[in-house]
Nucleic acid binder design. Structure first.
Length: 901
RNA sequence: GGGCUGGUAGUUCAGCGGUAGAAUACCCGCCUUGCACGCGGGGGGUCUGGGGUUCAAAUCCCCACCAGUCCA
């Protein structure tokens, strides 16, 4: 839906959509901007310009309009206490890795915390009403602006004020009044400074009006009233209206502090530390002027580099000053921002990698390190991480737990960056030595496959200029395509299947056939057949006389696929599930949870389930991890898993309201991904692992018997796959491995105890034999060559040695032939070597013999007879054929060919 | 999730259908003799694995694995 059209519609009826009681009470006037026409509400009747166009934009820099000064963490305490004293519950932030939504990698707004996708609908889950949350949000869109504009961040704290209008919550009037009073009462901002701008919001099938509030041109917050659904011509009021007020905490701090940039007051002691360490020349007056100027010019010119230039020019900063003062400051801001984002993301379980959201994190760290390289700074990243974590402690105490792990991950990733640098320099050196002219295509290939930017090539003087078409060509290459979703079966009017496997779970039961689709998909009124889902393979068994080969769930209906026919609709049928299969799968499913927890304990807090698969005699678990596993790590995980089995820990399964479960157990429960139901089933292996999971599980870990990891491989950057077997499958696996060893023992004629030594012996013998053959050929080739020369037959001007070989290989004849023609320049050496029912031809012509017959030509003629082909150089030719019966003819043809017949 | 690039001696790479190479490191000898350097010789490889095409594959095609890299 077009936002402009909605805005036009809403603004045409401001009393209905925008006028709140506060405006009336305080005497706010509605005005239209004389420059852009947008409508806004303000106390000063003489103001004709909207906040985007007023003269005193960003004049709070150096002159804050507030009574008090609050830095970042203090500002949150103020905001929090204000909302709490006004009846709000203060909720802890949600993870920045958005595991409860399939369509987002990271949490991008506070409202996302409470959105749960069920089917195609978004529903809201509020742990309290009304509430306020300091939600860390990650946004990578304006990454180039970070550090440069004074107000862009890769992650920021969105103050989320959320309310559902009901007996506890409130709607527009109170919302705007609260926001107004927060600014005036709490922060002491003069009410004449506050401007509300009319706007709208639309997304996910719903829409509503919104009021953005500004002070001196700085947008502090935006109160969105999600109210309608449908399209503009025909819309209705939502059952569940929502207030989504999001405000930037960084900006609240900034406006009270009046620092040149928002960075100066939001990273606590980090920027100060870096400025002192680097000795960057700072002069707050010039810097204030510069950042005020850039804030103003930014909206007018799109290109950030142009904005920088203009801003510098307007306050009289020359290139030297730019390079000494502004650029290093930008670098410091960038480092502080990027590291803070990495701390949050890694703490919440994301890993830098080359896929998915991890790529954004890798970019952040590489930008950080590249900036340090550029200025020649050698900050200890661990120190900076400590400074951040210490500073954030009062609001985000949870970062404490993962502080060490964050350092580990960033350390590893830094190592990768360094290796990558070395590789880049090597490639650059090769390019330099080749001294070839590089086309745009070459530059694109270098960039896309090796990460070598044209800027780097220019820096190292491999190219003199970056071709103007480079970026154009690059963006042409990336026209993204969206994938379509698969259509679902039409299951209208079919009631939800009664799921017995979550209840008594009988192995045999009787059920009524409700519907049969395409003669093979049977729907029953109730079932104990577990459908495919959550990586768990479906049950097999029988419905009547028909074999069930697949079971799947569509919505709340279970569909059984049968082989060779299906029962009649309306019949009562006897159903029986293959319990041996089910029990194997069940054991593997519980084992997956056990292995996941073991891996997390052994490796680190960054371990999450990436995906999983379990069937009767095999299972695999993909976990998020930064490197390949060592054999030792695999063994430790396996050991811990088996210790867990021996402890025979009980497993409890209970249903919870989702919000309750999240509050009680945290977001670790979402290992298996999105759970699209209101009631979540919590599988709790006491003291070890708690997950939301719909699968089947054993009652006690002892039932698993044995867990054996059979394989560990890195399936992509940041993901390791563990394959394993449990229970009976584990026994079978060890038995079959043992059998293989027995066979090896038998064929080696060794014993089980000494099999390894025997094997090493055999391998070494093989190697030695090969070496010996090589030596023998080397030493005997000369005498063999002489023998060949002696046996050669005169044929016109040349002498021919030709032989048919069944025992020795081509390697031998090549060595001998070469020697022979060296000793006798008029010799032609030709061998027909029989190998695997085909014939290989090798021929040499001596330096003098070449005039009579070239080796390559000879081979061609001979090979033709043998039904093959060949060729080669004057002195050496190779070829072959498959017709063994023609060998005698071939010998004859060789002579004739030399004689020129 | 979608691309792209690469995998050859311990290492860095060349070769891109026709006898597997260079540099460096290693071992031996010589020269010097404090080392570096210099000279001569030597060992070192199922060309990541598996299929296919071909008389012939490191080389071409397909698949897998490993590594790197870009984008959404």
């Amino acid at each position: 839906m077009d936002k402009g059209q909605i805005l036009a519609k809403f603004s045409s009826d401001p009393n209905r959509y925008y006028k709140v009681s506060l405006f009336e009470k305080e005497g706010f006037k509605r005005k239209s901007c004389s420059k852009c026409g947008r409508y806004f509400w303000v106390l000063d009747e003489g103001q004709d310009l909207c906040p985007d166009h007023i003269e005193n934009r960003y004049s709070f820099i150096g002159d804050p309009p507030t009574r008090k000064r609050f830095d970042y963490t203090q500002a949150w305490k103020e905001v929090e206490s204000f909302f709490v004293s006004n009846g709000h519950k203060s909720v802890s932030r949600y993870p920045v890795v958005c595991r409860w939504r399939d369509d987002l990698y990271f949490t991008i707004a506070s409202i996302v915390d409470f959105q749960r996708v069920m089917g195609s609908k978004v529903v809201f889950e509020f742990p309290a009403n009304p509430l306020v949350v300091p939600q860390t949000c990650l946004r990578f869109k304006d990454i180039e602006n970070v550090g440069v504009t004074g107000r862009h961040f890769s992650s920021f704290c969105m103050i989320g004020q959320h309310s559902i209008p009901n007996s506890q919550g409130y709607w527009k009037d109170k919302c705007v009044e609260l926001d107004f009073r927060l600014l005036t009462d709490k922060f002491g901002i003069n009410k004449e400074e506050i401007v509300f701008v009319e706007d709208v919001w639309a997304g996910g099938g719903s829409f509503g009006s919104s009021l953005e509030y500004f002070v001196r041109g700085l947008e502090l917050g935006n109160a969105v009233f999600t109210e309608f659904q449908g399209d503009l011509e025909n819309y209705s009021v939502l059952d569940q209206k929502i207030i989504d007020m999001g405000a930037g905490l960084e900006r609240f701090a900034w406006i009270t502090m009046g620092t040149p940039t928002a960075y100066d007051c939001c990273f606590g002691p980090i920027t100060k530390y870096m400025i002192e360490k680097t000795g960057v020349d700072t002069d707050s007056d010039t810097i204030s002027k510069y950042f005020r100027a850039i804030a103003k010019t930014l909206s007018e010119s799109v290109d950030i580099s142009v904005a920088r230039k203009n801003a510098a020019a307007s306050v009289g900063i020359d290139n030297v000053k730019m390079g000494k003062m502004i650029s290093p400051l930008e670098g410091i801001y960038l480092i502080a921002d990027h590291l803070r984002t990495l701390i949050f993301a890694i703490s919440d379980g994301a890993l830098p990698s080359n896929v998915g959201g991890g790529y954004n994190l890798r970019i952040l760290l590489r930008r950080t390190l590249a900036t340090m390289d550029r200025f020649g700074w050698d900050f200890n990243l661990d120190d900076l991480i400590d400074l951040h974590a210490d500073y954030l402690k009062s609001t985000y105490n949870e970062l404490e737990e993962t502080r060490k792990d964050v350092k580990t991950i960033i350390g590893i990733e830094k190592g990768r960056y360094k290796e990558s640098r070395v590789r880049m320099i090597n490639i650059a050196n090769v390019l330099k030595s080749q001294n070839k002219k590089l086309a745009v295509d070459d530059l694109i290939r270098l960039y896309e496959s090796d990460g070598i930017t044209p800027d780097f090539l220019k820096e190292t003087q491999i190219i003199s200029e970056i071709p103007p078409t480079f970026y154009e060509r690059l963006s042409d290459l990336h026209q993204s395509e969206k994938t379509e979703k698969v259509e679902q079966l039409d299951l209208d009017k079919i009631p939800d299947t009664n799921l017995l496997y979550y209840k008594e779970d009988p192995h045999e039961f009787e059920a009524k056939v409700l519907k049969v689709i395409n003669g093979k998909y049977t729907i029953l009124d109730k079932t104990s057949f577990y459908p495919r889902g959550g990586g768990q393979e479906p049950d097999h068994g029988k419905i009547g006389n028909y074999d069930v080969v697949d079971v799947s769930k569509h919505g709340n209906v279970v569909i059984h696929e049968t082989l060779g026919g299906s029962p009649q609709v309306g019949d009562m049928v006897e159903c029986k599930i293959d319990f041996a299969r089910r029990y194997g799968i069940t054991r593997h499913h519980t084992s997956t949870h056990v292995i996941n927890a073991s891996a997390r304990n052994i490796l680190g807090s960054w371990i999450w389930q990436h995906s999983a698969f379990k069937e009767q005699d095999y299972a695999r678990l993909d976990i998020t991890h930064h490197s390949s596993l060592t054999e030792e790590e695999i063994m430790k995980i396996e050991d811990l898993a088996n210790i867990t089995i021996r402890k025979n820990i009980p497993i409890f399964i209970n249903e919870f309201e989702r919000g309750e479960a999240e509050q009680k157990y945290g977001f670790r429960i979402y290992q298996g991904g999105v759970v699209p139901v209101k009631l979540v089933r919590i599988v709790n292996i006491e003291g070890l692992d708690v997950e939301a999971c719909g699968g089947t599980h054993v009652n006690k870990t002892g039932e698993l018997g044995l867990i054996k990891i059979t394989k560990a491989e890195r399936i992509q950057d940041g993901v390791v796959r563990l394959e394993f077997v449990a229970g009976e499958a584990a026994l079978k696996y060890t038995q079959s491995q043992d059998k293989k060893i027995s066979q090896i023992v038998k064929s080696l004629g060794s014993s089980k105890e000494k099999v390894l030594e025997s094997f090493e012996h055999v391998v070494k013998d093989g190697e030695d034999a090969k070496k010996r053959v090589k030596q023998i050929i080397k030493r005997t080739s000369e005498s063999s060559a002489k023998t060949a020369i002696a046996q050669a037959k005169n044929l016109g001007k040349v002498r021919l040695f030709i032989t048919v070989e069944e025992e020795l290989d081509d390697e031998y004849h090549i060595a001998v032939g070469e020697q022979a023609v060296n000793l006798d320049k008029s010799l032609i050496y030709c061998a027909l070597i029989i190998k695997n029912s085909s014939i290989r031809i090798v021929a040499f012509s001596g330096a003098d013999a070449v005039n009579t017959k070239k080796a390559g030509d000879l081979v061609k003629d001979v090979a033709k007879v043998l039904g093959g082909s060949g060729g080669g150089k004057d002195t050496f030719g190779q070829g072959g054929g498959k017709n063994m019966l023609k060998i005698k003819d071939a010998l004859l043809v060789a002579e004739q060919s030399i004689l020129g017949k």
